[in-house]
Design a protein around this nucleic acid. Structure first.
Lengths: 339, 339
DNA sequence: TTGTATGCGTTATCAA
DNA sequence: TTGATAACGCATACAA
């Protein structure tokens, strides 16, 4: 059976579609008696407005698009959770797409969302994304964009992120104060801002505490498999006999890889080598030893980014001006048994 | 600037919108010369078809809706991954919603998707969902539904799931063969089919091997926080001094909670008590001791369910008949150090 | 090969 | 207070 339309109601009641529409929307230029009968019949016939038609008419889809590198990642699923919840609160639905850390793919997904006429876009950049014409181009189409987590500082739009440099600085400083002085860093890919910033924070902490920076203590993890990257580089570190007494890893998953390797090789944590992670995944609480980490508010990041985005959409539709926001969410350290 | 429409192209080329439409769609009743000029201009003007208009016209949204209990859950994020990938391959986009294991919420989310006029729905039932009128009602609206993972066997639609009873049976049988004979079961909520089936598999395995079923060895974990549930019930089990030598847990997260509790209490795993999980989360490979588990193919489940759904949508649109499918995905055991 | 007319379901404008 | 008409952008049956 076909869905009921306003026309069906109008026919049944022998009134015009216009009046039905008005009654349904509670406009005041319709008599309370007809309004009542329309509402009653709509209820009875189980009328559901066709949102596609509404979308066409109002030029809004009440839909926002999200692009993240990958969804099978606790941090990002927490972000998505926050996004969906906040969006729903404002009557928006969420279409999620993945870039798989691939620039070309990211562009393609963006195109899909534009074609779908989403009202706004939330994106966390892929590791490969260096240039952002594809994003500025969208902005010009009057589709608001908010970037989060993996941002590009040059981008002309609102951003929600954490102070990666500061967070890394605090983590490494903690290690130093705890007495560790030969601290390695397992860094992420070269491109992403957060990878760079965490590295800079690490460097600055060393510097501020009079510890010379040693380039050979920086291990690059950019094989898109954090756990294995951590494991393999930890192995390498052991073989190279670097004499480090602590490691600051850019990600919990990498840190867990390190733990695993050390456990496999009889390296005592934190006695022989301490390990500090980043992101505070649930996993980190149940691993042995439990992992010290930086708490990164995923849910709140998704929520806030969505709030801003919808605000911009609303302003855009109302022809009100608005300015881009830079939201820096607070982080904190959680100290467990690995340090 | 407003998006370019076919009208703009038609105006520029001094031809009709119809011809533009046909040319764009590669219909053959349009001269190659005009086709070429249309395509070229469309490219130049950066024409993007308005999918909302297309949707209204074709009565299809090329969108599928997904409802899962919660996205911050490795199994479900793998499912979503599979769904998004398969959907995209067929030109569909995915709207994800969560039921938060709440029946009323599930109904509401379903309503939202219907209102959004999605072409089909994928759903994994909430723990609280007992009756399914809300689903059959949708089916009657000619919106195909495929249920997966947490299904209701009575439901009249396609289903993709695993043989929970068999999988549980195999896990418990493994324990028995390994020499464990006093095996506790940490079961899930009472409602969900998979919870029931895993329990039945456990019981059957005991029975088939001449081990008497002891009701007091079944611990109910239904507080919606698997890890804590596992931890607390493990604590209880220790206090009750049940003398068990193994535990079959309905979920890895619960199993990990057990591990944690045992580690905290100096219970040796598997020497004192062995632990078997279910689902094979990544976490289980890095926990100490690593957890034996049942491999549950999340990605493939999402992929397959989507494939079937899109198939049904396609058939429905073509007025072709189709029959509901019951797909049982294979599982297997992965034995690690906890057993 | 091209174009006209019509409709998808809703909303907005304006006249009655 | 009501309704006729047009429009959103596209696609199709049919006529030219």
């Amino acid at each position: 059976m076909k869905p009921i339309t306003q026309k069906d109601i109008a026919l049944e009641l022998n009134i015009s579609v216009t009046t039905v529409s008005k009654a349904l929307k509670g406009m005041k230029d319709v008599s309370s008696s007809t309004k009542e009968s329309v509402l009653k019949l709509a209820e009875k016939m189980n009328y559901v407005p066709n949102s596609v038609a509404v979308n066409l008419r109002t030029r809004q889809t009440k839909t926002i698009g999200v692009i993240i590198p990958t969804i099978v990642h606790q941090f990002f699923s927490k972000v998505i959770d926050g996004i969906i919840e906040e969006a729903e609160k404002h009557g928006y639905l969420v279409i999620t797409l993945q870039s798989n850390e691939n620039y070309e793919f990211e562009k393609k997904q963006l195109q899909l969302l534009i074609q779908k006429r989403v009202d706004g876009i939330l994106i966390s950049l892929s590791n490969q994304t260096q240039y952002c014409e594809h994003l500025t181009e969208i902005s010009n189409k009057n589709v608001p964009i908010v970037v989060f987590d993996k941002i590009n500082k040059l981008l002309n739009c609102s951003k929600v992120f954490i102070d990666d440099q500061k967070a890394a600085y605090e983590a490494v400083t903690f290690l130093i104060n705890k007495g560790y002085h030969r601290i390695a860093h397992f860094r992420g890919s070269l491109m992403p801002q957060n990878s760079i910033d965490r590295f800079l924070g690490y460097k600055k902490a060393l510097n501020d505490h009079g510890i010379p920076f040693d380039d050979s203590l920086v291990y690059l993890c950019d094989n898109n498999n954090d756990f294995e990257d951590g494991y393999n580089n930890a192995q390498k570190l052991l073989e190279e006999n670097k004499n480090v007494d602590a490691i600051f890893a850019i990600t919990d998953l990498i840190a867990v890889g390190i733990l695993k390797c050390f456990n496999d090789n009889g390296v005592k944590i934190p006695k022989d080598i301490a390990v500090f992670g980043f992101s505070d995944w649930f996993m980190s609480t149940v691993v042995t030893p439990s992992l010290s980490s930086v708490i990164q508010p995923g849910f709140e990041m998704g929520r806030k980014a969505t709030e801003i985005l919808i605000d911009e959409i609303t302003n855009l539709n109302a022809n009100k001006p608005y300015s881009y926001q830079n939201i820096v969410l607070p982080t904190s350290l959680v100290i467990r048994n690995s340090t």
